[in-house]
Every structure is written in structure tokens, then in C-alpha cells.
Computed example of a mutant assay.
Amino acid sequence: MTASDETPVYLAADCGGTNCRVRLFNEDGALLSEGLGGPSNASLGLEPVLSEVFRATRNALARLNGATIPLSRLHAGLAIAGLVEEERRQEFLRIPHPFASMTAETDAFVAQLGAFAGGDGGLLITGTGSCAFAVKGDKKFYLGGWGFPVSDQGSGARLGHLAVRRALQAYDDILPTSPLCKKILAEVGTHPPEVSGWARTAKPADYGALASTVIEYAVKEDEVARSLVRTIAEEVNQMIRSLVRRDVKEIHHIGGFAEPIRPWLDKAHGRYLAKPRGDVFDGALRLINNRTGLINKTGKARE
């Protein structure tokens, strides 16, 4: 495969609060390569998102064993967490890019497209952030996904945020302490002024990074950790119940925080959980091939 080869190459990207994952496929759908970038939630701004997409893409291109593919040969389909605000969506339609074509939708939309092969069903994402999206006939609807400060219930970032607050309450002797509280303070600042300073610049991914610690201590029977995890699990339960009330028959639960929180969820919800037909990258390929979602028709920027 050389720079003169004109066969299309497809770029599928999963842009989330923790990282940006990119996979390259040939026209037959075979995986060619993959690469990784940093946090790429739309709340950070579209230029930072595309910067991480470019970084992950170049990482993937560098792994092609000597093959040379310019960015201008790539048809990009992006699943972008937090791409919900109309202003941000309109910005996407105008932003310059170096690809042959570029289309995008929210990560939930694209993952649902992949999980149900374009058919009906509900998609619940719990990762650094959270969101649900469902398709039922000609109806489509979102739950949550409005950003960390006001939404993201049942997410890793929300669990990490609760843990930091709870650790400070223990430090101030408002509530009892525990090994988890001491561990959290050791991670973000021993004294409240240090924690406050950390929080001023902390991003959702920074809070989300603490979620695994809370789960670890919950498994160790730390009662504070268990209480926090139960709180977050109930938030996930609420989202599942909301999908069920809308008569969604099948729900696929994905995201980096899906497996850790699953043992804490209402067992009755298991009957709604569906086996996916594909993943977010399959959805991104459908996004490209079906010309679905936001289609950027702006002239190309230099590579």
C-alpha cells in the first residue's frame, strides 16, 4: 500500500474522556492498524479533540510496516463523547480537517449503531462520563451526557468526585474516616488546601482515575467505599429503569466502568442486557458508509 494507491482507507475513532482510540480499516473492513491518543471529550473543545484524533491516527499509521498513507486518503468516522451542544455540533460542520471526508456523532449514537447493527435497542455507556441512547422505530432519544458538572451520573468520574468529597469530610471529622479516605487524600493532597488546589485544575479523567481505587477498597469491605459504590450503582440502575420505562427491550451496557460496576447493579436488570452485534468501531464504519450523522464538508486543512 503506497501513497499513490487510491483505494479508500477508513478511520474509526472512539473519542472519550480518558483517551482517543483509532482503528484503520481497508475497504473490505479488515483491521489494518490502531493507535491511541489522550482525552478527547467534546467539552474540551473540538480543536483539542481533533488534535488527539490526529495523534492517535499518526500512531496507527506508523504501525503499518512501511506502508505510506496520507491523511487525505482517510475517510473518518468519529464517535465523540459529549458532542451534544448545538453550538459544538455546528462548529464540527465548519472546522477544517485534512481527511478525504469526516463525519461524527455522539459516542452513544455511534456505539448504539454498532451494537445493534443499525436496528432498535438501547445503549448505556458508563466510563469516565455516562450517557444512554436508544432507538425504537423512528424514535431516538438520549439520557444524560450533558457533561461532568451537571450530569454523568453513574460514571467513574462521579464516583471519584464523591470519594474526594467524602475524604475531606472525614478529614474535617464531619463523618467517620476509613482506609479509603486516607488513600484518596494520599492521591490528591494530604491537607484540604492541597486538595482544593488539585481540584481547581482536575478534569473528569482525573476524578475517573480514582474510581478503580474506590472499587478496590469496596471489594476489601471498606464501608465508606461500599457506600459510595452503592450510590453510583443506584444511579446506573436509574438510567436502566428509565430506558425500560420507554419500552426499550434490549440494552447494551459498555464503557470502561461497565464491568467494575456491574456486580453492584440490580440483578433483575440482567434480563434486559443484550449481546452486542458489533462495537463502537463497527458503528463508526456504518456512520461513514451510510452518510449518517454530522457530515463536515469544509475544505481540507494542511496535514
Rank of each mutant, 00 (worst) to 15 (best):
F99C: 01
E52H: 10
V49T: 12
R291M: 06
L228N: 03
E216V: 01
R262E: 05
A79L: 04
A67H: 14
L287F: 09
A258M: 11
G118F: 04
V150N: 00
L123M: 15
Y171Q: 11
V84H: 13
P176E: 11
A67V: 05
A186Y: 12
G270F: 04
L294T: 08
S101H: 11
T201E: 12
S72V: 05
S227C: 08
G17P: 07
D173Q: 15
D266F: 07
H253W: 04
R277V: 00
G156F: 06
K275P: 04
P193S: 10
I174V: 14
S33L: 02
K267M: 11
A202P: 03
V110P: 07
K220F: 02
T68A: 15
A104R: 06
W198L: 03
S51D: 14
T213P: 06
C20R: 08
G189R: 13
C20K: 05
L32I: 09
A79W: 02
L78Q: 01
H269S: 05
R241G: 06
T190L: 15
Y171N: 07
L46E: 08
K183M: 05
N237W: 05
V229K: 09
A258Y: 12
G278D: 03
L228T: 01
L285R: 15
L46I: 00
L287C: 02
V135Q: 07
V164I: 12
A30W: 10
E6V: 12
V214L: 01
G121H: 05
P260T: 02
A163K: 00
T128R: 07
T2Y: 09
S242N: 03
L44Y: 14
L83I: 12
A76S: 13
S130I: 04
G35L: 04
K297N: 15
Y10N: 04
N237Y: 00
N59L: 01
A100N: 11
T231Q: 15
K275S: 12
C15E: 09
G66Y: 09
V164A: 05
G38S: 12
R88I: 15
E187V: 03
A170C: 01
H269L: 05
E303I: 06
V248F: 00
Y207H: 11
I174Y: 14
G256N: 10
L287Y: 11
